[in-house]
Design a protein around this nucleic acid. Sequence first.
DNA 1: TAAATAATTGACAAAGAAAGTCAAAGTGAT
DNA 2: ATCACTTTGACTTTCTTTGTCAATTATTTA
Lengths: 169, 169
Amino acid sequence: MARLTDIIEQMIKDMIEENEGMVEITRGALAEKVDCVPSQITYVLSTRFTNGQGYIVESRRGGGGWIRIKRIANDNSTSNYVMHILNGVGDTLSRHDADVYLTNFVDYDIIDKKTAVIMFAATSDQALAKVPPRTRDLIRMDIFKNMLLSKAMQLEEEEKKEADERNEM
Amino acid sequence: MARLTDIIEQMIKDMIEENEGMVEITRGALAEKVDCVPSQITYVLSTRFTNGQGYIVESRRGGGGWIRIKRIANDNSTSNYVMHILNGVGDTLSRHDADVYLTNFVDYDIIDKKTAVIMFAATSDQALAKVPPRTRDLIRMDIFKNMLLSKAMQLEEEEKKEADERNEM
DNA sequence: TAAATAATTGACAAAGAAAGTCAAAGTGAT
DNA sequence: ATCACTTTGACTTTCTTTGTCAATTATTTA
């Protein structure tokens, strides 16, 4: 089961973790360590470290080249952040991408793990089994957006309440 | 006559039993063991391991793909209650009935209000606007059951943890 | 200094390895 | 004989792995 992809993904994430949000590698060296072709690294980066997944990847070719992977910091207010995501996403959402978003939200403390599990359940393939495959990702997105919108409203209310309490002092 | 379906069903259930509620298989391998076409496994999963029957099935395609089957253990009071509800409801769920159930769950302290709001959003007509009206209530029920099942699993885990803590004293 | 060479990553395509879908054909109860 | 359930298989979609060649940059050499 240990897919190469997953091993590489984890290695990079560990490195990022150890390095406070940023890591610089050379593709060839990492490939050698994992014993795979270099383009495998490229593949992992393009499927697991995209913008939507909260990463910025920069690189430089040529002798002495490198690949730098940064984790995007989340310094907005949380309700703003959610609204930002909400506006950025398109019309369709694969099961996998839903998972990625939710994991991110949990990591950034926007939703708690229990809520994430519920949201995952609501957008799972099993829940949508009776939806024709053609439209499944569309429906999934609608459900996801609706839940997220509710969440954003909850967050906004909480933030407002907190602000009020501060003002009363 | 031992139907293939039944044999496969039993095999999977045995595996789940041995594995504390969860197994991960590859469809092809299991099919080979039973000497049937892979889609037979799919059939068994979709008829015998549904949400209503207390199972959550996830999968992933592609190289290194898998199918994961989780069952709710069902030996605890609250999760038992939720499962009871889950089995009692039919195959379809109107928007209004969803609302009634959720209000009830909140009243009975099975889910908190925030979660209820999320679950409401997931089953709202707006979320399901693109689902043809004829099947909308069916899909709504599937989503509802999936979320509820996840919730039941969470509750069960919590209860187990609490019991453990009591035992440690 | 200009040109060649070596060292890197990038883009994309092809092949491989799963699982998913769907409809047709088979079986068994009633 | 019908109806629901099972079984099968061809085809599709998704994800992974590998490979090739192009683009870019640094370094060496003439």
